[in-house]
Design a protein around this nucleic acid. Structure first.
Lengths: 216, 216
DNA sequence: TCCGGCTTGGGAAATTTGCCCGAGCTGCAA
DNA sequence: TTGCAGCTCGGGCAAATTTCCCAAGCCGGA
């Protein structure tokens, strides 16, 4: 691995939008100590680029098409436990943040953050620290006080049914898929709404999407 | 208005993510002929900045919180018909593209485009041309062949009800908001599902989201 | 003028929801 | 070991919603 103090911090950028990557690249490289050594526009390429360039930090947008960003994190970390991954996204759901850290991320910064906060997060992650932007810290703080996230109160079965439902499946399809009676699926549906406080199906779909359970 | 040939092209950046704006700014300014004269992070500020700086081109991400980006375009164009607005977003739904052009946009470029395509679009828009990225041209071409998008078959009232429904509003809330009977809203709900072919409410929400009608 | 489409709602049958219940299972703790 | 708690699974039943069908007013275009 490169000597951080001596040669600066090497960064692998992962984002599916080329101009966004180029923008980040310029912002980072204007800092002097940050060097973008490679880019990737999907989760699959990310690991290849990681192996080739062995960057100090992977800066990754986890809302990409194809494989989930969380999968990509797990993937990289499983094969290279020393990898430092900074998640960089517009989402700020506590569930997603926790999922990212559980998957092995070292930091989590939202795109709403000031550029200075982003580059400082990169430096922190490169030093082996855990880094997150202020808004994420607040979200997690709120979350820890409010006794866990929405999804934490759901059982495995409930989450699976919520995922399929939010994905557009009908009650019959879910019942057939999971070998349940329609009535049971209906009951779960009701239970999920009760537990999450969603008043309409649409709110449930949005909840699932904002928790990263489904992508739209 | 500035003399494009003599002084370059002045650009107003509108995007709700500061680091994204800063990234774009650097990409644009590295071109030599493009100058970012102001930034705004919401639709309301965008018009203020437009009045103050009178830029040649407004480069705008229309997926921002608060007022719809389409509203912002209409707003600016209504007050300054000479304004050139280049929409720059990750969405590539034909409905949204057409809506943007109808609202008065001069160009539409997706974030998937190569940076060179983006800067060329800015130059084209500044010259008064209509500009769009290749993928958008393909989407519109497909759309014109496939006899219109899903949303095209919906009336204004239907779209408004779909938007509110997908946003999480209950039937009662929509009825109250629009001064309709609950029965009418229910009928619209059914009609929308029939017209769009959605079998569940969840599919409807996803449809609305994928058309840029709601954000999750 | 007439036709077609949008908007607004009524009606009635079919279906789903909301909420209650019980039963089997598992893990955990006293 | 017993017992409790929580998950999973489904029945029951009244209330609500959905699904269609229909009608009437309005407006713009042929």
């Amino acid at each position: 691995m490169s000597e951080v103090a001596a040669t600066g911090i090497s960064v692998l950028l992962v984002d599916d939008h080329p101009i966004v990557r180029q923008g980040y690249r310029r912002v980072l490289e204007s800092q002097g100590d940050l060097h973008v050594v490679a880019e990737a526009d999907n989760a699959a390429d990310a690991y290849g680029a990681f192996k080739t360039h062995d960057p100090d930090v992977v800066m990754m947008d986890i809302s990409m098409p194809g494989a989930s960003g969380l999968e990509a994190i797990r993937n990289i970390r499983a094969r290279s436990p020393r990898a430092r991954i900074l998640v960089f996204t517009m989402h700020n759901e506590a569930v997603l943040v926790k999922a990212a850290f559980n998957a092995g991320a070292s930091g989590f910064v939202t795109k709403s953050s000031a550029p200075s906060a982003v580059v400082n997060a990169i430096r922190g992650v490169a030093r082996g620290e855990r880094a997150m932007s202020d808004d994420i810290a607040h979200v997690l703080a709120e979350d820890s006080l409010s006794a866990g996230s929405v999804l934490d109160q759901l059982g495995e079965r409930e989450i699976e049914i919520l995922r399929q439902f939010a994905g557009g499946a009908t009650t019959e399809q879910i019942a057939a898929q999971l070998n349940l009676s329609v009535k049971t699926v209906q009951n779960y549906h009701y239970l999920i709404k009760t537990k999450t406080g969603a008043r309409t199906d649409a709110q449930l779909v949005r909840l699932a999407a904002s928790c990263g359970l489904t992508r739209i």
